[in-house]
Design a binder for these strands. Structure first.
Lengths: 137, 137
DNA sequence: CCACTATAGTTACCTAGGTAACTAATTTCA
DNA sequence: TGAAATTAGTTACCTAGGTAACTATAGTGG
């Protein structure tokens, strides 16, 4: 094992997971990146764009783009925040109604992705990656 | 730990590694994806585009783009292969001369990325990733 | 031989993430 | 108070990976 291999498998895994989720959400008209935003909003309630960026570790421009797309789809609203700069993002009723279906799809996809990967391995993987990431940031 | 967290951490790590490498290679006029192609060509010698795609697990169109960019930069040549469809990709003398510097940069970056991540953990992580990936593909 | 199928690479277009630059608004501090 | 610095979000543009469709070439089998 050298670092090339470590990095390569990591990137490859990431891409594979992304592509599989996108494929699963495609019939529902969503992409993984949009689901991530929706999921966070559902879990934590309305957030500012800044908070979304911080939570999901995504830079502002792509977050703007994702949110604008979700606004266009009618799944989120941009509501003025505590001052004139700030925008609060919240889920619409449409999104709340759709959420269970989206969630079901994601959970099934994730389970299928991890079907043959033991839970102990998942836990180990998570902790190793989290540990690495934490010392990087 | 739930699958959202596992996936999120993984993607985040992947992005961080990619961005850090790109930043390091930027002064040398290279991107990580180009380096990957160069590295494989240096390791294994001339390969067809198809072989490069297979080795790096990238679809043909982005590989075409990366190669075309490398051709424009004068780092690779496209040489006719065994039939009229096939193109062999090989490193130019310029690239061979530059390679040590590129490699040094990449190695230093990688080492810095892993500085506080013990080698035993790296090995464990690699094997977990590889194991998961193998049952997915 | 030739129609059909498969293959290698390309083009067009999509999403996603990033940086740089920018605008408008807010905060800071002399 | 007001200039300078900071902040929240946007615009422009870049790279990277993907799918669909395509072109030219090669292989297959009746």
């Amino acid at each position: 094992m050298n670092s090339h291999e470590l990095f390569h498998t990591l990137h490859q895994l990431s891409r594979h997971l992304t592509n599989t989720l996108n494929e699963a959400l495609k019939p529902l008209g969503l992409y993984g990146s949009q689901w991530s935003v929706i999921f966070v909003l559902k879990s934590k309630g309305s957030l500012t764009q800044k908070e979304l960026c911080e939570y999901l570790f995504v830079e502002a421009p792509p977050m703007t783009r994702t949110i604008q797309r979700l606004v266009k789809q009618g799944y989120v609203l941009q509501v003025p925040g505590k001052d004139k700069r700030e925008k609060l993002i919240q889920l619409t009723d449409v999104a709340l109604k759709m959420f269970p279906l989206w969630e079901k799809t994601v959970i099934e996809t994730n389970q299928s992705l991890m079907k043959h990967f033991p839970e102990t391995s998942q836990e180990k993987l998570f902790h190793l990656q989290k540990s690495w990431l934490q010392q990087l940031l």
